[in-house]
Nucleic acid binder design. Sequence first.
DNA 1: GATGCTATTGAGTGTGCGACCAATAAGCAA
DNA 2: TTGCTTATTGGTCGCACACTCAATAGCATC
Lengths: 211, 211
Amino acid sequence: MSSSIQPKRIRKDPAARRAEIVDAAAAVALTEGLECVTLRRIGEELAVRPGLISHYFPSAEDLVAEAFGSAATAELDHLLPAGRPEGTPRGDLARFLARTSGEAYDAISRLWLNARHLSRYRPVLRDRVARQEAAWRERLETLVRDGVRAGEFRTADPLAAAVQILVVLDGLGVHANTATPERPAAVLRMAVTTAERELGLPPGALDRTTD
Amino acid sequence: MSSSIQPKRIRKDPAARRAEIVDAAAAVALTEGLECVTLRRIGEELAVRPGLISHYFPSAEDLVAEAFGSAATAELDHLLPAGRPEGTPRGDLARFLARTSGEAYDAISRLWLNARHLSRYRPVLRDRVARQEAAWRERLETLVRDGVRAGEFRTADPLAAAVQILVVLDGLGVHANTATPERPAAVLRMAVTTAERELGLPPGALDRTTD
DNA sequence: GATGCTATTGAGTGTGCGACCAATAAGCAA
DNA sequence: TTGCTTATTGGTCGCACACTCAATAGCATC
């Protein structure tokens, strides 16, 4: 008959099951929003009873925070790989700015917007957001310092430069949920312009060459 | 006994009642968030049955959108009064920037954040947000144009200048719900710096003198 | 003072949520 | 094979929400 029934229980290794839950939650958070990360929704995603999710996350709020943290961390690692940089600081920064522009980044902008708002009501999530902000800030600041050390960038305050770039990105990303009218070219280039200005680079120095 | 009972019905003029509802909803939206604008919550606020709110707003989503629109419009009128400006464009802009900095503006930042996120799920609200964005943009652009005409500002693209200022304000306001660590002075001054740069003003020209 | 309109109430429906808990069965160890 | 641990199920409870609708009562009009 109906091939969807599954009378057989599948018992998994707790660590693996937990990881599976977090992955599913992160995916739902990214595509549907953090308020859709519910016990029922994630249980359905994994073809498992909601109670099981409760078993691993006695408080649903913890799962929501974990989903955000997981998704944001993965994205940061994609945008600005940690450890030894792959290319020159200038190239890495250009790639970072290229990736944080365009519609492909909208999903991430939406997630941040979502998390920052939901932080208002969810203390656990608020902590995670603060930690993620710090991680992004530090990763970008490190890149700036590397660039200064390599003689590619010039700034008296790497932290201030990094934060200013992030503020502009936040400001640009805020419209991810609303149909934005055509924006002036100067606005679309704000992130690049800000980075070039704060890092003492000539205009166009951070335009993406390849990617 | 209990003085809270009120067996007596109060029948009000529909227009007045509707305005009363919108005002209450706007106040709740501002202080507690748009998701707290529910039939029950607003009814409780006005000491009225939830069904009455339904009577005036058959769809709750309309009330939420109206609450946001009302609050945002009132705030815009406070920040940048329409009609004939009160002082010089430079003075008006300096006052605007002063008012959009500091913690007093956090409630508004929270509201915008709230509305922009909730727009993801509520089409009616999304439309209102788009209209409010346009209103803020146009009001600021007008101020810039006035300043250019008066010879106080210098820019080739008033719209681009206005939007850039708003993007920076959005970026700065995004942290209203999270405890932000001490930010570099250069970051705190970003809005003023951006305005001065885009409008061809010397540094410090937009620092608030009085308020 | 009687009448009619409608603002307002009261009660009920259905949905989705987190949390809780006892019963079940998978898989490992003895 | 037997037994134990615990991952997993199935069901329930209480809460908050939007929405519906018939009954009620304020108030203006006649």
